Each structure stands twice: as C-alpha cells, then as structure tokens.
Amino acid sequence: MKRVVVCGTKFGQVYLSALRDGPFELTGVLARGSARSAAYAQEYGVPLLTDPDQVPELADLACVVVRSGVVGGEGSELAGALLARGVHVLQEHPLHADELARCLRTARAASAVHHVNTLYVHLDPVRRFIETARRLFELQRPLYVDAACSVHVAYALFDILGRALGALRPWTFTAPAPGTPFTCLTGTVGGVPLTLRVQNQIAPNDPDAHLHLLHRVTVGTEGGSLTLVNTHGPLVWSPRMYVGRDADDRFDTGADHLRLPSASTIGPAHAPTFHDIVTSVWPDGVRRALSELRQDAEEGRDPLRQGQYHLTLSRLWLDATAAIGRPELLVQTAPRPLSAAELT
C-alpha cells in the first residue's frame, strides 16, 4: 500500500516534494485544473485528476491539502468523498470537530482510515521536545507551560502540548489581555497552568505568511525548564537556579548542582536553514505522517482510535480561538529577514 494521490498544490507542494523519493509512489494530482497544478503534474510525470471518482483506481492513500470548512475551504467535503470510495485519507489541519466527526463516520462505514496531519508533531525537533518532556515528567510533575505561536498554527501547538503532557483535558481559558501583535491567553491544558501569547494577525493579501514565529514552548518543573526555541529547534534545558546558604549564612557556592551549566542544548545546537526546512524537514514530517496512516490502514484499525483524540483537540482549539477573538487584518509587504552576522 504505497500509491498516493495529492489533492491541492499550494501547501500541497510540500507533500509532492515528500513523494519524490520512497517509500511511497505519487500516482496523481487531484486539483481544479489550474496552470500551477498542471505544471506540477507534468513535473512529476503523473496525471492531473479533476474528479474524486478517478482516485480509487490510481491510489490507496490520498493527501487532502485543501483548506477545510472551518477556514473557508472544501477540504473536508473532498476528504469525505474519497473516504466514501474506500481511499484512506491524510488531511491537513485544522478541522472543526463537526467536520472531523463526519469524516470519521464516513471512514468507518467504508472501512477506510482518516488521519488529521498537524505536521509539526512529526518533525524531528518537535518529536525530540515531546520525548524529552515525557522523560522529564516521569521525574517531576509539570508546573507550568509558557508558549507563544501564530494563530495560523495554534491547532498544532495544542497537539504538541497534548502529546508532551500526555493529556488535553481538563482545559480552561480566561478572557485574554488584548495586545498587538500578541494577545495573551491564560488557563490550563491537561490540568497544567498555561500562559499563551498568540500573534492574532492575518494578512489577507498573503494569508499564510507574515508570522513572527511558528511555535515557542517552555515547560517547567521543580528542577528546571525545557524550551523548544522555535518549531525547528534548538531544544534547551535550563536547570532551576538555587543558591542555598551555609552554616555561616553565606552563599553555599560549593553545592554540586551549582556546577551544572545554566543552559544546555539537547540534540543539535543549531536549527536548520529555512531552505532545509521547506525542502527536507517538512517533507520528512509528511512521510512520517503517511507511514502512520499506511500502518493503520494495513492493520485495519478503527479510525476512531486516533480520531477521538483529534476530536478533543479540535474542541480545545475552538474554545481557545473563541477566547482569543477574531484576528486583526493586515496588509503586509515581504519582510527583510536579518542574519545573526548583521547584529554583531
């Protein structure tokens, strides 16, 4: 089970790139027939499809990289049409819980599998953060989460937190403190106190760009804090600073823990370049997500196995976005990114 059709060619170009090499085989591009989609189909040497009825004879798996209804697209309708035809579907996030529930019902009825892909949880730096956080929480309980993200990727942030903490419930959100460019939201996720700053801005002239950041996450325990500096790393451990007093009421500078570095990287000390992120890191994440879908499909697993978690995730995200409110609309021009060398 390796034949894949990609539906959509905007962000879908990342999925297409993921299929240049094995273990999957790209067998078609499903789109509305734009010049861009036709060019991609020609580049990859596969047919350009325009009807979901054409997919089952060409593919076992489909990547639906089309906006869902909650963000103004028809991706969930397309996913449902493919599932009803027995095609297993990997659908790009976010999804409204009602859309997801319909897809899961359709998948179950057709003995197909539906997965939501939040992408970032499949990237090596985020996986390292999740795995390290879980080891940390085996030693000490989490005391707080301090995070920041763009509104574009808040859904994925909550997935990262749910996997790191081991739970999404219970969650609460208080009325945010308005601000520009960040809105501050407080509450709990998985019962752990949360402070979240969200860049609640969208530029309609370029809606997927102009993010100040994707994700930055710190989880804290009694013994220190673990920080994912940004979505693509690095990961930094900072032991908690504590200088006790000796018998003479002086700083006890001989304590063993004072010899710990005040901050250490776990894994690579440097994050990848943006070129490598788009051409290598993200495609690797797509392949990992597709591998999970294929495994569940081959083993005949109930789509609700993963679906229940994503239903909860969607409801949490809906509550958070309702608390944050409508995004500020901007008209932006392309920024000029600075290098570190320019600052020294």
Rank of each mutant, 00 (worst) to 15 (best):
M1N: 09
K2A: 08
V5W: 13
G8M: 03
T9Y: 06
T9Q: 05
K10P: 01
K10H: 13
Q13T: 11
V14S: 04
V14M: 03
V14C: 01
Y15C: 00
A18G: 00
G22R: 14
E25I: 15
V29L: 04
V29N: 04
A35E: 15
A39F: 14
E43T: 02
P47R: 00
L48P: 03
D51L: 02
A62D: 06
V66D: 08
V71K: 00
G72E: 00
L82Q: 04
L83E: 05
A84W: 13
R85M: 03
G86Q: 12
E92C: 03
P94C: 04
H96S: 13
A97K: 00
A101H: 10
L104W: 14
A110Y: 13
S111T: 13
A112D: 08
V113P: 12
V113F: 15
H114N: 12
N117R: 12
L123M: 02
D124V: 13
P125M: 03
R127F: 09
R128K: 00
I130N: 07
E138C: 08
A147M: 05
L157M: 10
F158V: 07
D159N: 12
A167Q: 10
A167E: 06
L168W: 06
T174A: 13
T174N: 15
G179R: 08
T180G: 04
C184A: 14
V189C: 11
T195G: 11
L196A: 04
Q199C: 14
N205L: 01
D208G: 08
H212M: 11
R216Q: 06
G220K: 02
G223H: 15
G224M: 12
S225G: 03
T227W: 11
P234N: 05
V236Q: 04
W237K: 01
Y242P: 08
Y242R: 13
Y242D: 15
R245P: 06
R245F: 12
A247V: 14
D252L: 10
D256R: 10
H257G: 11
L258K: 07
L258G: 05
L260I: 05
P261I: 03
P261Y: 10
P268W: 11
A269S: 06
H270Q: 10
T273M: 00
F274A: 01
H275Y: 14
I277S: 02
V278C: 10
V278P: 09
S280M: 05
S280W: 11
S280F: 12
S291T: 15
R294N: 07
E299R: 06
R301K: 14
D302C: 14
D302A: 15
Q306P: 14
G307K: 11
Q308V: 13
Q308T: 11
L311H: 01
T312G: 01
R315M: 04
R315D: 05
L316C: 12
L318P: 12
A322M: 02
E328G: 00
E328D: 00
L329Y: 02
L330G: 00
V331F: 02
T333D: 10
E342F: 12
E342H: 12
L343T: 05
